[in-house]
Simulated assay, not measured.
Amino acid sequence: MKIRSGLRADVEAVAALHTASWRSAYAGIMPAEYLEGPLYEERLGIWGRRLGAPAPGAALFLAEDESGVVGFVYLMPCSDGRMLLDNLHVRPSGKRLGTGSLLFRQALDWVRAEHPGRTLYLEVLEANTSAIAFYERRGGVRTDRRVAHFDQGFELIELEYAWPVAEAS
């Protein structure tokens, strides 16, 4: 497996993996009509904007094997001085094979090198217990609990986890 920086040419592969991951991980959590709707087109728009005009200080890393993109992690700086791990997704059929761990380690190492001293944090849906367990095994400390408001008209509880990068492992 190889980790590399994402490129504009990766938009479709990232959008497809993001869609498959959401449909798998959020089944029974998010409304079915949303997950079964034009989710791919929505993700395609998001990734087209992100990769077409990258935000200063943001990064996308892809995990690839001989079959193509099997995972990705996206990071972006926030106005509060922290770094948001906005997405970490692995192909649903490839979970528990170490890809998520490799991508998480890449994220930590990159933040340490490119944004020293910044805290890494993420938001995860409270009902996504497998993701929470993954982040807690990697030393994540829960720092907040709040309601996430989705543009599609629903609300879910999300948790915030943080890693002071100097201490993260």
Rank of each mutant, 00 (worst) to 15 (best):
K2F: 13
K2W: 14
K2A: 15
I3L: 15
I3M: 04
I3W: 03
I3Y: 05
S5K: 12
G6K: 09
G6D: 13
R8D: 03
A9E: 15
A9G: 11
D10W: 05
E12L: 10
A16W: 08
A16I: 02
L17A: 07
H18E: 08
T19H: 06
T19Y: 03
T19G: 05
R23H: 07
S24W: 08
A25S: 15
Y26H: 11
Y26M: 07
Y26R: 04
A27D: 15
G28M: 13
A32W: 03
Y34S: 10
L35H: 10
E36H: 06
E36P: 02
G37F: 14
G37M: 11
G37R: 13
P38V: 02
E41S: 10
E42A: 15
R43Y: 09
L44E: 11
G45D: 09
I46Y: 15
I46G: 06
I46F: 14
I46K: 10
W47G: 06
W47Q: 08
G48L: 08
G48E: 09
R49M: 06
R49P: 07
R50L: 12
G52Y: 12
A53D: 11
G57D: 02
L60E: 03
L62D: 08
A63H: 13
A63W: 10
E64W: 09
E66Y: 08
E66H: 12
E66C: 04
V69S: 06
V70C: 12
F72D: 08
V73E: 09
S79Q: 06
D80C: 00
D80S: 01
D80N: 01
L85M: 15
L85E: 01
N87I: 02
N87T: 07
N87V: 02
N87S: 15
G94P: 04
G94H: 14
K95M: 15
L97S: 14
S101E: 12
S101I: 03
L103E: 04
F104Q: 09
F104W: 14
F104G: 07
R105P: 00
Q106D: 05
Q106P: 00
A107D: 09
L108Q: 10
W110D: 01
V111N: 00
R112I: 03
E114P: 01
E114L: 05
G117I: 01
G117N: 02
G117S: 06
R118Q: 01
R118S: 01
T119K: 00
L120I: 02
L120F: 02
L120W: 01
Y121D: 01
L122H: 03
L122S: 05
L122V: 06
A127R: 15
T129Y: 02
S130V: 08
S130I: 08
A131C: 07
F134L: 03
F134R: 02
Y135V: 08
E136Q: 15
E136I: 07
R137A: 13
R138Q: 14
G140E: 01
G140Y: 02
T143R: 12
R145V: 05
V147E: 14
V147A: 13
A148C: 12
A148I: 08
H149E: 11
H149T: 11
H149V: 12
F150L: 04
D151L: 13
Q152M: 09
Q152Y: 04
G153I: 13
G153K: 13
F154G: 07
E155I: 09
E155M: 10
I157K: 14
I157Y: 12
L159P: 01
Y161R: 05
W163R: 07
P164H: 07
A166W: 03
E167I: 03
A168W: 01
A168V: 06
S169C: 12
S169N: 13
